[in-house]
Nucleic acid binder design. Sequence first.
RNA 1: AGAGGAGACGGGGUGAUCGCGGCGCGCAAGCGCUCGAGGAAAGUCCGGGCUCCAGAGGGCAGGGUGCUGGGUAACGCCCAGUGGGGGUAACCCCAAGGAAAGUGCCACAGAAAAUACACCGCCUCCGGUUUCGGAGGUAAGGGUGAAAAGGCGAGGUAAGAGCUCACCAGUACCGCCGGCGACGGCGGUAGCUUGGUAAACCCCACCCGGAGAAAGACCAAAUAGGAGAGAAGAAGCGGCCCGCUUCGCACAACUCUCGGGUAGGUCGCUAGAGGCUGCCGGCAACGUCAGCCCGAGACAAAUGAUCACCGCCCGCAAGGGUACAGAACCCGGCUUACAAGUCUCCUUUACCG
RNA 2: UGGGGCGUCGUCAAGCGGCAAGACACGGGACUUUGGAUCCUGGAUCGGAGGUUCGAAUCCUCCCGCCCCAA
Length: 114
Amino acid sequence: MQSRRLKKNSQFRLVYSEGKREAGTKVVIYFLKHESDSVVPGFVASKKIGKACQRNRAKRHMREIFTRLKDRFNDTNLWIVFVASFRPDECTFHEILADVESSLGRAGLISTNG
RNA sequence: AGAGGAGACGGGGUGAUCGCGGCGCGCAAGCGCUCGAGGAAAGUCCGGGCUCCAGAGGGCAGGGUGCUGGGUAACGCCCAGUGGGGGUAACCCCAAGGAAAGUGCCACAGAAAAUACACCGCCUCCGGUUUCGGAGGUAAGGGUGAAAAGGCGAGGUAAGAGCUCACCAGUACCGCCGGCGACGGCGGUAGCUUGGUAAACCCCACCCGGAGAAAGACCAAAUAGGAGAGAAGAAGCGGCCCGCUUCGCACAACUCUCGGGUAGGUCGCUAGAGGCUGCCGGCAACGUCAGCCCGAGACAAAUGAUCACCGCCCGCAAGGGUACAGAACCCGGCUUACAAGUCUCCUUUACCG
RNA sequence: UGGGGCGUCGUCAAGCGGCAAGACACGGGACUUUGGAUCCUGGAUCGGAGGUUCGAAUCCUCCCGCCCCAA
């Protein structure tokens, strides 16, 4: 069973306009408190970062990062959007993981000690 | 050994852990060493299949293709040849029908860019008499241009000219031979010769109906029991006309337009012009037959992370690198991108034997 | 998935077979004590690669990049 995911354009627009923003050097995060039984993620990789292969890789990296961190969220009533602003062939998975982890910590969404 | 030419190959491997999508089993939790990106999946430049519009019909318009024969479901693709061009050669390149159906264009230069024509020349006559002017003939030579009215030699002439002749080139026609054919070879006749451009309009031959998986089918939900228009005709068909089909000939129904609402689920959805191997036919592309195999099916869209060992390349070493790139209904091509490589055949040059 | 358009000097652009206009900006010069203004002057392999033609920014083919539309 696939976990829930943000899919509709209207959902993304809602998070961008109503939610808060925390920018890291590699991934920009938008989040919004919203009634739900679990954290609902959305992943965005625009044409700016490369062609289809690079965009696919960026989404996979971000999805892997989310599944590693999802048990550490303080509040589950959350919609969160990850926007890639890195080029996947220029940085490693662990660099992106560290960047996302520090961003989420600054925003106070996850417990800082693993 | 150097320099080239043609073609082909694969696109790291094995194992473990966590996770993802599909499939199978199970009521379920879950279990399963059951499978999980490419040669280009790309660009979307062509051709089909499939689905719906009517079974895909006729004409016009529009578009495409353009040497011949073959292959194919089909093609603008491929194979084999013909003709032309390039290269010492291996080999490579070519949208390669028609310019005596018609129209247009050919800048500048030049006499003239196509009903041929005459600047400098050459020659004859007249006037004049150191240089010139006028009338006519002529196109060999000069000059211009990307391109100048067949080439060269001889005869001929006042000077010349296919004006005449020989040879050569080219055109048309005829005959014979070879080839399925494009065409090639040989011989003859004619007129002596009719510039280029059709990737300018065009003519000729052949081909093409339209839309596309958000195609299309079913289920469920929702707005709404909305408004306006239509006529003996209306709609289906999409550039137009015809034809055809359906509904109808006066409530309704139906169709269209406007406004509004959905875009959830299931199917289509992967076994196919499929792949591999072999025999036979064919120069080949390819085809017949036989055997074996099943190799993704998602939908904001599954392939990721970590580790170990072995490859390959760069480097003395530490270490670093390992392309292009991600299926979206499916096939056949074309085009473009591609790290480091491997193999086969061929040409040519140099040296040694 | 289907369709349409654009690319010319640093910027905005005209030109659609025959030496690539123009404006602003920039460089150089003149004028001025200097600067501004003014005047003169210079600069483009027409997105790339092939082909057609005597000749291509223009015509044809294939790529590259950008933008837009419909569902």
